[in-house]
């Protein structure tokens, strides 16, 4: 576990402790469970997005943890949270941008094989080599294009939602998306067709 993750664990522990002390006893237990389930669903999406963004599980969990700590520390009653998914993705994006600025000279190393190993690929569908080419191509497109491709293509956000999360105009989202998808198409195409065994007999 990275040092940053350990530090964040300690911060999270103290923040969680503070929240527990403030928690009122008794009522709204069912509501709390519902909130937790909703949040867990979003946390899975955040971790998946972060994993494909930064390329390895430790850094991805670092990023998600930092985003959750930021939500815990900064969420205030006078700032309404209307769309929880957009709010969480926006926070994650901000944390990611801060990290990028901090590590400006450190290249992001994507563990493509490790990523492909984590994929639960259904048998008989697109084979592992194709997935590997696709994930590798995804890791090679510029990060601001990768963000849009993942938000829209993988997480299913609309162009307007993605624009809100990234804090850019919708035209920028469309432009980054088309350039990212075109780069992805060229990179996958360059990997070339592969020979496949069509008949073992």
């Amino acid at each position: 576990m990275s040092r940053l993750l350990q530090r964040r664990n300690r911060e999270a522990q103290s923040a969680a402790g503070a929240e527990r002390e403030e928690r009122p006893d008794g009522a709204a237990r069912a509501g709390r469970r519902g909130h937790e389930e909703e949040l867990l669903h979003h946390v899975a999406a955040l971790r998946r997005y972060a994993l494909l963004l930064v390329g390895n599980p430790d850094d991805a969990d670092d990023l998600v943890q930092e985003a959750l700590v930021r939500v815990l520390v900064r969420t205030r009653v006078w700032r309404p949270v209307r769309d929880l998914r957009a709010y969480l993705f926006t926070t994650l994006h901000n944390v990611f941008i801060d990290e990028l600025r901090r590590k400006r000279h450190t290249p992001v190393k994507v563990d493509v094989e490790g990523l492909v190993d984590r994929l639960a690929i259904p048998a008989g569908q697109t084979d592992r080599l194709e997935w590997r080419d696709f994930v590798r191509a995804l890791s090679r497109i510029p990060v601001e294009q990768r963000e849009v491709v993942l938000l829209v293509g993988m997480e299913g956000l609309s162009y307007a939602e993605a624009a809100k999360v990234l804090g850019v105009p919708i035209g920028t989202v469309m432009s980054r998306l088309s350039r990212g998808r075109e780069a992805l198409r060229r990179l996958v195409h360059r990997a070339g067709p592969r020979l496949r065994v069509v008949d073992r007999s």
Partner: peptide, 24 residues
């Protein structure tokens, strides 16, 4: 293909605490 239903590598109380804060 990436359901991410494994246990995350961060403090188990964190998600509960954030859920409580958001509920409040």
């Amino acid at each position: 293909a990436l359901p991410m239903n494994d246990t995350p590598d961060f403090h188990p109380e964190l998600v509960g605490a954030v859920a409580r804060r958001l509920q409040r």
